[in-house]
């Protein structure tokens, strides 16, 4: 079964493989931004929690709500480090690869000749750490747009130049 599958001429085996690409990690500083973002979420949802547990019907369950809320956030915070380590990217000759996610790992591949445009973003918090994110848009919709967060400003510019040059070259 397996032999008949791989011997077919349609699927070639000696071509570049996504699996073998060495993916690079994002800047170490980005973990602080992740922690800050999670803290902000913590505060917002804590306020939500207080409001919910004050609703009359749920009065008896308020302790349960608080406990489950805190357990959830302990989990989320403890996952921060693994989640950070899982965010990886690579620029190949003809495409770029981005992979992320702890429980649900997803890997996205976009060929350069399908990129519509790209943009560098810098949020308020990332400005403090001097980090940028670079986003690649395709015509395939927002689900597959790659956004690599936590690059140093120079790296983001460098990759932007690199990809732009690739796209220009392909247009000719």
């Amino acid at each position: 079964m397996k032999n008949s599958f791989t011997n077919n001429k349609i699927l070639k085996e000696n071509i570049p493989q996504v699996e073998q690409v060495e993916l690079s990690k994002i800047e170490d500083k980005y973990i602080f931004i992740m922690l800050i973002n999670r803290t902000i979420w913590f505060i917002i949802s804590f306020i939500g929690c207080v409001i919910i547990s004050n609703i009359e019907i749920l009065d008896n369950y308020s302790i349960a709500i608080y406990i489950s809320f805190i357990v959830l956030f302990i989990l989320i915070f403890s996952f921060t480090r693994i989640s950070f380590q899982k965010k990886k990217y690579a620029f190949r000759d003809h495409d770029l690869i981005y992979s992320s996610g702890v429980i649900f790992t997803s890997t996205t591949i976009i060929p350069y000749n399908r990129i519509q445009h790209l943009a560098i973003h810098q949020s308020f918090i990332s400005r403090i750490f001097d980090l940028s994110s670079i986003q690649f848009y395709t015509a395939g919709g927002s689900y597959t747009d790659i956004s690599i967060k936590g690059l140093s400003k120079e790296d983001a510019e460098k990759w932007k130049e690199f990809v732009s040059a690739k796209i220009e070259k392909l247009k000719k």
């Binding site: 702890v102 649900f104 996205t108 976009i110 395709t138 689900y143 597959t144």
Partner: peptide
């Protein structure tokens, strides 16, 4: 346009 591979743990 692009390809996404998803793998749950």
């Amino acid at each position: 346009q692009s390809i996404v591979i998803d793998q749950d743990i």
